Simulated assay, not measured.
Amino acid sequence: MFERFTKDARTVVVDAQEEARALGHTRIGTEHLLLAITCSTGAPVGTTLARFGVTAESCRAAFDPAPGASDGHFDEDDAEALRAFGIDLDAVRDQAERAFGPGALDAPPPALEPAGRRLFGLGRNPTGLVGHIPFEPRAKKVLERSLREARTLRSDHIGLEHVLLGVLGCDDGATAAYFRRLGVDPAALRAGVLADLGQAA
Rank of each mutant, 00 (worst) to 15 (best):
I158M: 00
F5W: 01
P137F: 04
E76I: 09
C39V: 10
R60F: 05
P114C: 07
R181H: 07
F100W: 10
I133W: 13
R93C: 04
A195I: 08
L23C: 01
R10Q: 15
D64M: 06
V142L: 04
P134C: 09
D64T: 10
G128R: 10
A56R: 08
G128S: 08
T26D: 07
C59Q: 07
H32W: 10
S40A: 15
A174V: 12
T26H: 15
L82V: 05
V193W: 03
L197N: 04
D8T: 09
P65G: 15
D8H: 12
L182R: 07
A201R: 15
D15V: 06
R190D: 07
I158D: 02
D78M: 06
C39P: 02
G42A: 10
I87E: 02
E149H: 01
A150S: 11
E31V: 00
L194E: 13
L143W: 03
V130P: 00
P65H: 10
D64H: 03
V54C: 10
T38P: 08
L82Y: 12
L35C: 03
G192S: 12
G128P: 14
L189C: 15
R83K: 15
A195F: 08
R124I: 12
A96W: 05
A62H: 00
A195M: 09
L49C: 11
G101M: 11
G72H: 13
R180C: 00
S70C: 13
V130D: 03
A174F: 02
P114I: 10
A56C: 11
A61H: 00
T11W: 04
D185L: 06
G173V: 03
D90T: 09
G101T: 07
R154M: 15
E113Q: 13
H162N: 14
A191Y: 05
T6L: 04
D171M: 12
L122N: 06
D171I: 13
A9T: 01
L33E: 11
G192V: 14
A115I: 10
N125T: 04
L49R: 05
E57G: 11
F52E: 12
L164V: 00
Q17N: 06
A16E: 04
G86S: 09
A150I: 09
L105F: 00
V142Y: 02
G29N: 07
A84M: 12
E76Y: 01
A107I: 07
R51K: 14
N125D: 13
A61G: 05
H32N: 05
V167F: 02
S70I: 06
E18K: 11
T11N: 10
D8C: 11
H73F: 15
F2G: 13
P109D: 02
L165V: 01
L143I: 12
T48P: 08
A187V: 13
E161F: 00
K7S: 08
D90M: 07
H32I: 08
G121I: 08
M1N: 15
R60W: 01
A188S: 13
A66W: 09
A187S: 07
L143E: 02
R118W: 02
F85N: 01
V54E: 03
A81T: 14
G198S: 07
L168R: 10
G198Q: 11
P102K: 12
A20M: 08
R181L: 03
A50M: 14
